[in-house]
Design a protein around this nucleic acid. Structure first.
Length: 705
DNA sequence: TTGCCGATAAACACTT
DNA sequence: CAAGTGTTTATCGGCA
């Protein structure tokens, strides 16, 4: 108390560095739902901070470029095909009564086909020069191969058709068949060719891309996906009779098996095309192609269509009711024909899928790490992790380059990786109770999901107090002006970039209200510091008893999970196989006690030296046990054993404040910012031992409390 | 049901 | 005077 009164006089405008700031626009408006736009006080100041735009940028990743390349190539191929199509029909090797339909085929096929990017779209995304280069490159290559390939392809088609006819027992369907099949085959082969090409490039080190993307449209788009099993077949089928074409394709030393494998794995993820099966051609031949089901739609695929279900069209945003498949097909061909719109929609869908896949891979990776860390067998991943794992694996077939998934930084409101949906009380005015203190050490949690919070407009699951503290502790000198605190908030959390008015008031309120925040006069003016002891004092009681230190703060808190780590929990583990509760259960079932024990033990023996030593920066050194410790310890934020003065339960290192934050993180850690030196400034040294004194010095002087 | 805690709102004082 | 900063009070809702 004294502190403030004394200091207030001096206070000079802290404005110094704030201005730079943050905040992207968004009018003040009481973002937080509850409104109260009034907030006459400072809160209103909404306007000025300029977001620390550090984040977000719309650059194109190499992978994207590649993706586009591929699409472009496919498009070229498609055009080629379409041209061919018209020509093909002439040969008339088929009885087809539905010659007419043949025309449609290409359309539907094309629609489903990989290339979904129109040149225009490409242009929008790529810079002209880029586009040019890519196009030329790609086209040249493709065309070359295509032309060569096509001649052979024609022959091949004839052969196949003949075979089919011979085996021919197929009634009407057949009719359609030949032409369509031919098209489909061609298309498919084109795609494969394309794929081959890409693979070759990859192998040659010319390109590195993510399987997802490499396979891009093909596999990503459910509709376009090729049945995994089909591919091999295809190759086989063609190769068998002696397809010269094949050879030309594989040239680069790609062996069939390899190709097939890769292709398969590529296709796998999307796991599409249930209907494929139907297509089994009468003679069982290149039925393979048929998989393009819908495309050929009409006659075949009597049963279902991936875009048709429950009597309605499932085309994104469509939902048109169709009595039967036939009608649906019509609808499909008319409403969703190959045009800019459909193309764009496909593209979007593709992106969605890709994003999800990437996200999934990321998450599963994290999960693995978490489980490994918790001494769980990754092998017994529980129901939900299972699929994850699988898909992840699928989407990243080995042998391929796995570009850092990180690239994709979805600014989507996805839930923070490490968190359960819980934390998403979706920003509302939610008065989320932050059990955070107990459950997740803010520092680690933050470090882990830093990117997430930075980009997603999700309300962070921490209390203002803990956030403020975190902000302050992150700085080398452990002190911040109010404005700097604001900036930190906006910089670290997208949420605070938008919901301006209220939180600033809340921050001030918290600063004033909590004894743990001490105002100190500084050269800069008034700055705020944290009195760890006070901070610790605030909460020791609670968590001590019931809650323990959470091993891995996988779940911050939030209604659902809210640290339900009750000691008792172990028993009821089962009820919680539900995903949301899963984490909780996992943890609890992990023999929380044991962990806790080991944690303590580890801490006991390792305690500070390690934490404070530079070595701590090196995750490796600390190994599995420590991570736990740091987290918890490091984030005195919460579970901290109430200060060094009291509280027997946990070891109570005096106040190794945040420094301990350093912790090793599963995958992301690296990019996120090494928590260690404190996210903020590059001043590892300051952090260390000095810090303790820092607090001591400043605070004492001020006479805390 | 009660008490604690955190979030939010708002009034007010003070400084720049 | 306006804006920023701090303090304080009141209310609400979640949670144990």
């Amino acid at each position: 108390m004294m502190v403030e009164s004394a200091s207030e006089t001096i206070r000079s405008a802290p404005s110094g560095q704030n201005g730079v700031g943050s905040l992207s626009g968004q009018a003040d408006g009481s973002g937080s739902g509850s409104g109260a736009g009034a907030a006459g006080t400072a809160g209103g100041g909404a306007g000025r901070d300029a977001a620390a735009g550090a984040d977000s940028n719309g650059e194109m990743s190499p992978a994207d470029l590649l993706h586009f390349q591929q699409q472009q190539a496919l498009q070229v191929a498609r055009q080629f095909l379409l041209q061919q199509a018209s020509g093909l029909s002439s040969p008339g090797n088929n009885d087809s009564k539905q010659a007419a339909s043949a025309v449609q085929v290409p359309v539907s096929v094309a629609m489903m086909s990989p290339q979904m990017l129109t040149p225009q779209q490409m242009q929008q995304i790529l810079s002209p020069p880029q586009l040019q280069a890519l196009l030329q490159q790609q086209q040249a290559l493709m065309l070359q191969q295509l032309q060569e390939y096509y001649k052979k392809q024609q022959e091949q088609l004839h052969l196949q058709l003949l075979t089919q006819q011979q085996a021919g027992k197929q009634p009407p369907k057949e009719a359609l068949g030949n032409k369509q099949l031919a098209f489909q085959q061609q298309l498919l082969q084109m795609q494969q060719l394309q794929q081959q090409h890409l693979l070759n490039l990859q192998r040659q080190g010319l390109v590195s891309l993510q399987p997802n993307q490499a396979s891009g449209p093909l596999q990503t788009l459910p509709q376009a996906a090729v049945c995994p099993t089909d591919l091999p077949q295809l190759w086989k089928g063609e190769g068998a009779p002696g397809q010269p074409a094949e050879d030309s394709v594989k040239q680069e030393g790609l062996d069939l098996t390899g190709t097939a494998t890769t292709a398969t794995s590529f296709a796998a993820p999307p796991k599409v095309s249930p209907p494929l099966s139907h297509h089994t051609l009468p003679n069982g031949q290149p039925t393979v192609l048929t998989p393009r089901r819908d495309s050929s739609s009409h006659e075949e695929t009597p049963s279902s269509h991936p875009l048709y279900g429950h009597g309605e069209c499932k085309w994104p945003g469509c939902e048109t009711l169709c009595e039967d498949l036939g009608q649906f097909i019509k609808h499909l061909n008319t409403e969703h024909a190959l045009d800019d719109r459909s193309t764009a929609q496909c593209r979007v869908q593709m992106q969605v899928v890709q994003q999800l896949e990437i996200q999934l891979a990321k998450e599963s990776e994290r999960l693995q790490a978490m489980m490994a860390h918790l001494h769980m067998r990754p092998s017994e991943p529980k129901p939900f992790s299972q699929p994850v794992t699988v898909s992840a694996a699928d989407s990243f077939p080995d042998g391929l380059v796995h570009p850092p998934t990180s690239a994709a930084a979805p600014v989507t409101p996805l839930r923070p990786p490490g968190l359960g949906s819980a934390s998403l009380h979706s920003g509302g005015p939610a008065r989320r109770r932050s059990s955070d203190k107990f459950c997740s050490p803010i520092s680690s949690e933050l470090a882990q999901n830093h990117e997430f919070y930075k980009n997603a407009d999700v309300r962070p699951p921490f209390t203002y107090a803990s956030l403020i503290r975190q902000a302050i502790l992150e700085t080398p000198d452990r002190q911040l002006t109010l404005n700097e605190i604001y900036n930190w908030f906006t910089r670290m959390f997208a949420y605070f970039r938008r919901n301006t008015a209220t939180w600033k008031n809340a921050v001030r309120h918290n600063l004033s209200l909590h004894k743990c925040f001490v105002r100190v006069e500084n050269v800069k003016g008034a700055v705020w510091t944290v009195d760890e002891r006070e901070y610790q004092k605030r909460r020791p009681p609670k968590m001590t008893g019931t809650r323990g230190l959470l091993p891995a703060p996988a779940t911050p808190h939030g209604p659902p999970f809210t640290c339900a780590l009750d000691p008792e929990a172990p028993g009821e583990g089962e009820r919680g196989l539900r995903s949301p509760t899963l984490v909780k259960n996992m943890i609890s079932s992990l023999s929380y006690g044991a962990l806790n024990a080991s944690y303590q033990a580890a801490l006991a023996e390792s305690s500070f030296p390690i934490l404070n030593s530079p070595g701590m920066l090196n995750p490796g050194s600390t190994s599995s046990l420590l991570p736990l410790s740091h987290d918890d310890v490091g984030a005195p934020g919460e579970p901290l054993p109430s200060n060094g003065s009291s509280s027997p339960p946990r070891l109570s290192p005096p106040q190794y404040s945040h420094q301990v934050q350093v912790k090793e993180e599963p995958a992301e850690a690296e990019e996120d910012r090494r928590p260690g030196p404190a996210l903020g400034p590059p001043n590892p040294s300051t952090a260390g031992p000095a810090e303790d004194r820092d607090l001591e010095e400043e605070l004492p002087g001020e006479e805390l409390s």
